[in-house]
């Protein structure tokens, strides 16, 4: 049989803000790059995001937050994924993330962060290069 490998990415919006433009633009760009994107909708609790990531067996979870609550919400998603045995999933984030928050988030397992004005092409390349190879 010929094996078909395709990157699957979950794009999720934790928290209470309704800024979904960035998430949607990114979802379209990922699709155009040959990636399968699952979009879970607005205002998701970290628990809901982790559950969706497990059920969908995604390679990457992309979190988008423009409410300022990223320091709480992003690490929580990482923690929940770990608890459920999905530590191999790549977690990245974007939105209104100030530079000085980035080291702390990375220390908590959010591997890359892209704030306002980031190039979409760079984000897509990053995801393509860093999505875990899984058997």
């Amino acid at each position: 049989m010929t094996t078909v490998q395709r990157i699957r990415v979950l794009i999720a919006k934790p928290g209470l803000d309704g800024h979904d433009r960035g998430a949607k633009v990114l979802a379209l760009a990922l699709r155009d790059a040959g990636i399968e994107v699952i979009y879970t909708g607005l205002r998701q609790q970290p628990e809901q995001i982790a559950a969706a990531a497990i059920q969908e067996d995604v390679d990457v979870v992309g979190l988008s937050c423009l409410s300022g609550a990223h320091n709480v919400l992003f690490p929580r998603v990482v923690e929940l994924l770990k608890e459920q045995g999905a530590e191999d999933v790549l977690v990245v984030g974007g939105g209104t993330i100030p530079e000085h928050d980035i080291p702390g988030l990375q220390a908590n397992g959010v591997q890359a962060l892209f704030g306002p004005g980031s190039s979409i092409a760079d984000i897509v390349d990053y995801i393509r290069e860093h999505a875990p190879q899984r058997s």
């Binding site: 699952i38 979009y39 879970t40 998701q44 628990e47 969908e56």
Partner: peptide, 26 residues
């Protein structure tokens, strides 16, 4: 064209994300 996809059906089923008796796969 690209081989990619946006899988959006799940958005309509948000109320079930945390129900252990429901498994959704896009």
């Amino acid at each position: 064209f690209s081989g990619g996809a946006i899988l959006g059906d799940r958005i309509r089923m948000q109320q079930h994300y945390l129900d252990a008796g429901v498994y959704i796969r896009s």
